[in-house]
């Protein structure tokens, strides 16, 4: 049970982090549950040990001089003697979420942890839904922070908000091209754009690739943000800045990640599903998709076909990331 169960655990899966829980705590909980599942496997049958004992039968004279091999039960494999078979497990966390934020959090177990690095190197976009509240300003842009000022928001309309969102998206689009180090007038850039791959392949400030308003009912509004290289704090600050642009103030009441790269909300496991079997199933279900997506996204050039096919997904990292660097530095 144990080692076989462990072998099926190498890979990536997504969990749904509830608000108010630290990612570190979530990671520890998942590790604990996995260990519990692995150790709960069926106990090995009590072992026998061969000992040479005096034979109990026959006449009194000969019996003392003959040793007979008998198997006696031994306690060396008793769970109280041996202790748990698994005491620690390597679990890595992908793109972080701070304590107030909620949403999809990618976790890697065992060899799957190196896939987390690949996911980071792929610089994929993430989706967020951000809920804002007009008419208030706090010091940390959260709803429950210290109140700094109160304003009126009667003049804010859906059109005004949409206009400002469009401006934000436009300015970020420009920055996106600048940071992606691609000359837009080349054939290569055209082909990359055809495949939707123009994006910075190294560090950059937060870049928003798409933002729109889902729901507007003052004082509340709900935004959908598609972005990369963000932190949740920066998203809250974005809400604050939108409020200032609208000539009022706004605080952020919820930040929720609905997609992290190729993990969507449907893949995320809820708290009740953080057990060995659900996680094993999730890892198995995600494995082919992870391999395919990583291969596609780590090779921004044309040479996807020449790459060795990823038999074991964590082996494909080396050549593809090297090629990725060449693609970036070529210009």
């Amino acid at each position: 049970m144990g080692s076989a169960g462990l072998a099926r655990l190498h890979g990536l899966f997504a969990a749904y982090k509830p608000p108010g829980l630290k990612w570190m705590h979530l990671r520890d909980t998942v590790e604990l549950q996995l260990l519990k599942g692995l150790n709960a496997g069926r106990r090995p049958s009590p072992e026998q040990r061969v000992r040479f004992l005096l034979s109990p039968t026959e006449g009194s004279e000969e019996k003392a001089l003959t040793l007979v091999a008998t198997s006696v039960p031994t306690l060396t494999n008793h769970p109280l003697v041996r202790g748990p078979a698994f005491t620690s497990l390597k679990v890595g966390v992908g793109h972080r979420l701070d304590a107030q934020a909620s949403g999809v959090l990618v976790l890697g177990v065992g060899h799957g942890r190196s896939l987390l690095t690949d996911m980071y190197d792929a610089h994929l976009t993430k989706d967020y839904t951000v809920r804002g509240l007009l008419g208030k300003a706090t010091d940390d842009f959260c709803e429950d922070g210290r109140l700094v000022e109160k304003t009126t928001y009667d003049h804010v309309t859906r059109e005004k908000l949409d206009r400002i969102l469009a401006v934000i998206q436009g300015s970020h689009q420009k920055a996106l091209v600048m940071y992606s180090n691609v000359d837009l007038k080349t054939q290569e850039a055209y082909e990359m754009a055809m495949r939707g791959l123009i994006r910075p392949m190294n560090k950059s400030p937060m870049l928003i690739t798409g933002i729109r308003c889902l729901h507007f009912a003052p004082p509340e509004f709900l935004l959908e943000v598609q972005c990369m290289h963000e932190t949740q704090k920066q998203l809250r600050k974005l809400v604050h800045e939108i409020g200032l642009e609208l000539k009022t103030t706004a605080v952020c009441s919820q930040v929720r990640r609905t997609r992290d790269g190729f993990f969507t909300l449907d893949d995320a496991l809820l708290r009740t599903q953080w057990d060995l079997h659900s996680i094993q199933d999730a890892i198995r279900a995600a494995a082919p998709r992870v391999a395919a997506e990583l291969e596609k996204n780590l090779s921004p050039g044309l040479d996807t076909q020449q790459l060795p096919s990823a038999g074991r997904p964590w082996d494909s990292q080396g050549p593809s990331s090297a090629l990725g660097l060449e693609g970036c530095t070529g210009h």
């Binding site: 031994t74 060396t76 008793h78 003697v81």
Partner: peptide, 8 residues
């Protein structure tokens, strides 16, 4: 560090 050695 274990009981294994002694328990038998």
């Amino acid at each position: 560090f274990t009981l294994r050695d002694y328990v038998d």
